Simulated assay, not measured.
Amino acid sequence: MTATRYEGNKKISVVEGCKKAPKANEVTVEIAYSGICGTDLHIFHGVMDERVGKPHIMGHECSGVIEAVGSDVSGLSIGDKVVVRPLDPCGACYACQHGMSHICYNLNFMGVDTDGSMQSYWTVPASTIHKIPQDMDLKNAALVEPVAVAVHDVNRSGLKAGDKAVVIGGGPIGILVALVAKSFGADVVISEINPFRLGFAKDLGIDTVNPTEKDLVTYVNTWTDGVGADVCFEVSGSKPGAMVMTEVVKTRGKVVLVGIYGQPAEVNLKQMWLREVELIGARVYEDIDYDLAIDLVAKNDYSFDKLITKVAPLEELQDILDGMDTDQQGMKVLVKC
């Protein structure tokens, strides 16, 4: 088998190895495609060295086919097309004991805390496996994980048909949140400053606004007849996004914090007080989110596949990651494993 390893200092090596036989409660997946996400870029840049260790196999957005099944595994068979929900909780902490194992206090996020999917074969706990339709395109199936993130964000918001939603940030997750919100029947606008992303969103039928050209609060007030949006999804992880997110929602509106903030950011708490705004955290996904994501991607009524802007061999991962810092026109890059 072939695997790619992060060695530190933005260096990726391609190595040959041996498949790991599954234990009793594990399966081995022959990985077809693995997507690159922002977390993988953070690892590549060395931001997460203290957490991931070195050498490290990245990747957690993947699709593939079951190649081997452990002795205690039921309901899964060799040849099944699958995706991996890369969360391995402890099962014993407060979160796990109260139905929130996706935010386990001791969560092993596979591909970050342990080796991931950017290899030919990946042996994982059977509990992380979701079967997909046998006729589902494995390239599209590699989008299930990020779509599940968006589904969880929208589910956390309580969004319903006819609601108005503002998405701050038009990167891959922002686009997916907007598409999933539209699938729930909401009216959606994306706030973004990157011209390519603005055009990309428009091509998918999503309304957009550039906050450097139009004041976002004024725009939303006009759009909502002065009421404010029902929900704001802050996906940018930026200081301007954090400042404005509480200003665009209505009385008792909801702000869902999707973007990751490495450092504290200023938030307009007065606006939260004035309108009794709810601030909601949203992290990864639950089983139910994965099931809906599989259904949405399989049907593809909202053109999720258009987010795949490049597919390249696993052996080219070094060049791909080197180029992503300056690529202003990429959305989702897949490596073929």
Rank of each mutant, 00 (worst) to 15 (best):
G75E: 11
V82Y: 01
I66F: 06
N300Y: 09
G59D: 06
P240A: 07
V112W: 10
F44E: 01
M100V: 10
V124L: 11
L257E: 04
V124F: 10
A126L: 01
F196Q: 07
Y6F: 08
E286N: 05
V73C: 04
P55F: 14
V15S: 06
W223C: 00
M331I: 13
G171L: 01
E7T: 12
M331E: 05
T222S: 09
E276R: 04
D203K: 15
G241H: 08
L321V: 04
I57S: 08
A165F: 08
G53P: 04
D88G: 13
A265H: 10
S71L: 09
P22F: 00
I43F: 14
P313Y: 07
T309L: 02
K299R: 15
W122M: 11
G185H: 10
H56N: 11
T39N: 03
Y105F: 14
A161V: 12
L269E: 11
A181T: 07
D187R: 10
S74P: 05
V188H: 04
L159M: 14
A181F: 06
L107G: 04
D319C: 10
D49R: 08
D113S: 15
S71G: 10
E61C: 01
S127W: 05
K20A: 12
Y302K: 11
A3E: 14
G281W: 11
D322M: 07
R252D: 14
A95S: 15
R5A: 13
D289M: 03
I320D: 00
L279Y: 01
D295A: 10
A312Q: 05
N210V: 12
S77K: 13
H130C: 02
F184C: 10
V149M: 03
N108I: 15
Y285V: 00
F184K: 06
Q263W: 13
R51G: 09
F44T: 10
V82S: 02
I103E: 07
I36V: 12
N300I: 03
A32F: 02
P86V: 07
V256D: 04
M1L: 11
A181G: 05
